[in-house]
């Protein structure tokens, strides 16, 4: 915590626009969640933005609990949540459940999915699942230095276009690309950038019909729900948390975002 201020002055950080607040999360304006596959550098990004010292390590599963920290950028105060790495949002181990529950019920204003640029395809699995739940997401294309060393090139503009959400290349360990990431977060939360996320297309016929059938009923019950299809899928998979959320009506909180946010802040 000693060198917290060291980098504040250097130009990469948009001339002091970023203020690392450590564990100070009073009166935050926005909540940002860091999701992503294991070992892609989420905790590194987290440390970078908050100035905290969340443990990082070169093996999948280093972070198993949720960590929170704060930062200030462009006069807005943010609460940042470092989540355990997950391969998917459909499985059920304890660490993955923490991540999933937060993205779903924590109602982050924006979810930053940290992605390993050297293994884009497998990481997109999670990105696409996140996009089924929320439409405010950013892809942080991390480990670009390693991708470069392996001669892997990624067409970020094409990726942005295909996913319908902003994509920011970074090298979190070297602080490269972090200012751009912050700028993008700012743009998304302030509504300057509107995401039009990609939605998963085909699956088997029987399933598609069942999903449509059920999604229709869900929409009737909870008008305006943006991810009725996903809720339908989860109901069909017997996900108890979603069943409970439907039963209690909590699921509609996804529409009444602001009301929930206040509740969540007081929890």
């Amino acid at each position: 915590m000693i060198d917290q201020n060291k980098c504040e002055a250097c130009p990469v950080h948009n001339a002091g626009n970023l203020k690392r607040l450590g564990i100070n999360m009073d009166k935050f304006d926005f909540v940002v969640a860091l999701a992503g596959n294991p070992n892609t550098g989420k905790s590194t990004v987290f440390n970078n933005l908050t100035g905290l010292k969340q443990h990082t390590g070169n093996w999948p599963g280093k972070t198993v609990t949720r960590a929170e920290g704060g930062f200030e950028f462009n006069k807005n105060r943010y609460k940042l949540i470092d989540l355990p790495g997950t391969y998917s949002l459909l499985s059920t181990s304890t660490d993955e459940e923490i991540a999933r529950d937060f993205i779903l019920f924590g109602q982050p204003d924006v979810t930053v999915v940290v992605v390993d640029a050297t293994r884009l395809e497998r990481n997109l699995n999670l990105v696409l699942q996140v996009l089924e739940i929320t439409d405010r997401a950013i892809v942080c294309l991390n480990l670009m230095d390693e991708a470069g060393r392996r001669n892997i090139e990624i067409d970020e503009r094409a990726l942005t276009r295909d996913l319908g959400i902003p994509v920011v290349p970074t090298e979190a360990r070297q602080d490269v690309g972090i200012p751009e990431l912050l700028k993008t977060v700012d743009d998304v939360v302030t509504g300057k950038l509107i995401c039009k996320p990609y939605r998963i297309t085909g699956s088997s016929k029987g399933l598609t019909k069942a999903v449509e059938n059920l999604a229709e009923k869900i929409k009737n019950e909870f008008p305006g729900l943006p991810n009725a299809r996903w809720v339908a899928l989860r109901l069909l998979d017997g996900d108890q948390k979603i069943i409970d959320a439907v039963r209690s009506g909590e699921i509609s909180g996804i529409v009444k975002r602001n009301a929930i946010e206040e509740n969540f802040a007081t929890v």
Partner: peptide
């Protein structure tokens, strides 16, 4: 079937945007 269809889409996108030089 859910996972299979997600991976199909992921592969489609990845194939378009990733290039590996030798």
């Amino acid at each position: 079937s859910i996972i299979e269809s997600i991976y199909t889409d992921a592969a489609k996108i990845a194939n378009k945007v990733v290039r590996i030089k030798e």
